[in-house]
């Protein structure tokens, strides 16, 4: 029974990684052809010819979905990486910089957490200029605060450890201590934070494009697909909504799965359950 738990966690981890890998492979192997309008193929329901069906302009929904998810992943990676870097920098700064630096940084964190995400992202994406760049910057600058707080608390707890005090007293520099002692110790938390940031960023990317901020209508993006498809749903065309929506949910769930699995495996208290 004890063994099964770990196998289960690893199985769900493997499934999630495979699913994400499948999307990445597909997004590079599927041609652009499915994105062209084809009036002979309008509003086909799912068939062997078009697995996810076609939309009102005759575009292949499978191709659009996969290309849309590719964009989601792209925004997700860039957005979460930037978010993690900001969180890491500010979190460590707050923890080792002294009381006043800590207060200022934490004030910023609280302010960012207090602001409604979506409104703020729309503002940022306007300010940066529309297009992919706007979406990426907007998601990056809004998703770091919670992680920054985690990093700060982790570092706060660890910097009082006796082995770090000893390291300092044998003449090691602050930079050495941060690099060799602190970063490796908080790496698991950072990595898990990074993975768990993904679904957030992806969902926000989808909501922004759904609302029409960010990309132009020709570019494939889950948000745009969904907002178009809602117009046709009253005609009984369920497939342009269901498949892309489902794919998005599964993708997000996969990242969530990876994050939680890693957290379980990393935590000594849950490792053996």
């Amino acid at each position: 029974m004890k063994i099964d738990a770990r196998k289960k966690v690893i199985a769900s981890l493997v499934f999630s990684v495979l699913f994400i890998g499948l999307i990445i492979v597909l997004s590079f192997t599927i041609g652009e052809k499915g994105l062209e309008t084809d009036h002979t193929m309008k509003n086909h329901s799912p068939s062997l010819l078009a697995l996810f069906g076609t939309d009102s302009l005759g575009r292949d929904m499978l191709t659009r979905t996969v290309k849309g998810l590719k964009f989601s992943l792209y925004v997700g990676i860039v957005g979460s990486t930037l978010g993690v870097l900001i969180a890491l920098f500010l979190g460590i700064l707050a923890a080792v910089g002294g009381v006043y630096v800590d207060r200022v940084v934490m004030w910023f964190v609280d302010m960012f957490i207090g602001m409604p995400h979506l409104v703020f992202m729309i503002l940022v994406s306007f300010a940066v200029g529309r297009g992919a760049m706007g979406v990426i910057v907007a998601t990056a600058v809004t998703h770091w605060p919670a992680l920054a707080r985690v990093v700060r608390n982790e570092v706060m707890a660890i910097k009082k450890a006796e082995y770090i005090l000893i390291s300092k007293n044998t003449g090691k520099s602050r930079w050495f201590i941060v690099r060799k002692h602190i970063l490796p110790a908080i790496f698991p938390q950072i990595f898990i934070g990074f993975v768990l940031l993904f679904p957030h960023v992806i969902l926000h990317e989808a909501s922004m494009t759904f609302l029409g901020f960010g990309l132009s209508a020709q570019q494939p993006s889950i948000g745009i697909i969904l907002s178009e498809a809602t117009k046709h749903i009253s005609l009984g065309n369920w497939w342009p909504v269901v498949f892309p929506g489902l794919a998005l949910i599964i993708l997000v769930k996969c990242f969530d799965n990876i994050g939680s699995s890693l957290r379980i495996l990393n935590n000594p208290q849950t490792r053996y359950l």
Binding site: A161, E162, Y163, I166, N169, T170, G171, H181
Partner: peptide
């Protein structure tokens, strides 16, 4: 305050004085 301290302390709990990683 900075650099190597010529006075070195040996603690009661050695397991806390080693980086577990």
């Amino acid at each position: 305050r900075e650099g190597f301290q010529p006075v070195q302390l040996i603690f009661q709990h050695p397991e806390k004085t080693m980086n577990p990683l």
